[in-house]
Design a protein around this nucleic acid. Structure first.
Lengths: 202, 202
DNA sequence: CAACATACGGAACATTGTTCCGCTTGCCAA
DNA sequence: TTGGCAAGCGGAACAATGTTCCGTATGTTG
């Protein structure tokens, strides 16, 4: 890639105007398509909505994960920032953890197919998984650590596993009225609690 | 579902010998293919293994679910029968439930892609979901009821939801060394426990 | 052994992801 | 303003896979 340096250390090779316009159109079209048909919506459909050819999608977003990350980045960031905020606002770290996970569940179940994609073994989704893990596992770990420090939960639970588990519980929640992931996540969080006479760690 | 006729009205026109042979070959081939490449293995691969054309597969097993159910029927039955057996053999129903779910998890994680298929919204898997629900939810409900009756857990948990949750937790377990669904199922089961000063029902 | 219904094989079609290349167009310099 | 060129575009083409359909082969029966 040619770098046009404009003074200080600004590695911003300005893209062509039509390219920038198309990228924005694609983001909007993808967001709409995701809502209408889930994150598995055919590439052709997104291209049609954006009024571009499929080649243009692949040029801007080489994998589907890139597109999904771009569409949901803001919301993931918001979720990540809510962790420390809750910890500060709520007295009990265990309660803060429960609330944060609730928020995470809300996010996942409202994004048709996102929880499934997070778990897919399709290499096209690897980057998606990676992004979520990088951004959210540390936040979850912070909440867990605080709860352990407060003596509310046992110290033997891994943030990655917990988050994966919660993500998994959200799969298919939209299509099944009899199934409520929030309830199960509550149970899971309840299961973390230190039993009354247990030592804090083991 | 095959009809077993026992005497009266006989709607059982015996199938041709080659048809019966092919059906068995297909079951064997499918079982091998599932182990080698997961339950999502391409239809053509199964056909090639069995030495038949793809048309023959669709004739005997119209949907993939039919084939999967046929291959795993024995093991699902065994799992279903283990429920009452554990209840009888183990003193605490809550412990029996935990053991039974452990067994269920073992079954799911060793069948590449089965947990995913159970949760898929692909209509081809609807019958699979239905079979598992019909066969295992009552067993799970029996264990839950016994645990409630013994005062070990709260009475507000639905067998279907619990089983769906456990199934979900098993998704992708094979491909991720950092993830252990057994651990999370344990937490979930621990979360069911009645808190010490809580009423038995609410 | 003849006739017929059953069952088979695999070509053909549909859907979707992905690549590739000839053409168009924004951008910059002259 | 205009000429030239690299960036960017569109969509045809290819690949993988599920599913259908029909001409053909074969087991079964009288």
């Amino acid at each position: 890639m040619p770098q046009i340096d404009t003074g200080s250390g600004s590695p911003a090779p300005r893209k062509r105007a039509d390219a920038r316009r198309n990228e924005q159109n694609l983001l909007d079209a993808a967001a709409a398509a995701f809502v209408a048909a889930g994150v598995d919506v055919p590439v052709r459909d997104i291209a049609a909505r954006a009024g571009v050819g499929v080649g243009t999608i692949y040029r801007h977003f080489p994998t589907r994960a890139d597109l999904i990350v771009a569409v949901y980045r803001h919301q993931v960031e918001a979720c990540a920032e809510a962790g420390p905020a809750l910890l500060a606002a709520v007295g009990s770290p265990h309660t803060a953890l429960a609330r944060w996970l609730d928020q995470f569940v809300d996010f996942l179940v409202t994004k048709h197919g996102l929880a499934e994609a997070l778990r897919s073994d399709d290499p096209a989704f690897e980057a998606l998984h990676g992004y979520f893990v990088d951004r959210l596992v540390p936040v979850c770990a912070g909440l867990l650590d605080a709860a352990v420090a407060a003596g509310e939960i046992r110290a033997d639970t891994d943030a990655y596993q917990l988050l994966r588990g919660v993500g998994n519980l959200c799969i298919g929640a939209r299509d099944d009225a009899r199934y409520d992931p929030r309830r199960l996540v509550q149970l899971l969080v309840a299961g973390l609690r230190r039993r009354r006479d247990e030592p804090a760690t083991r």
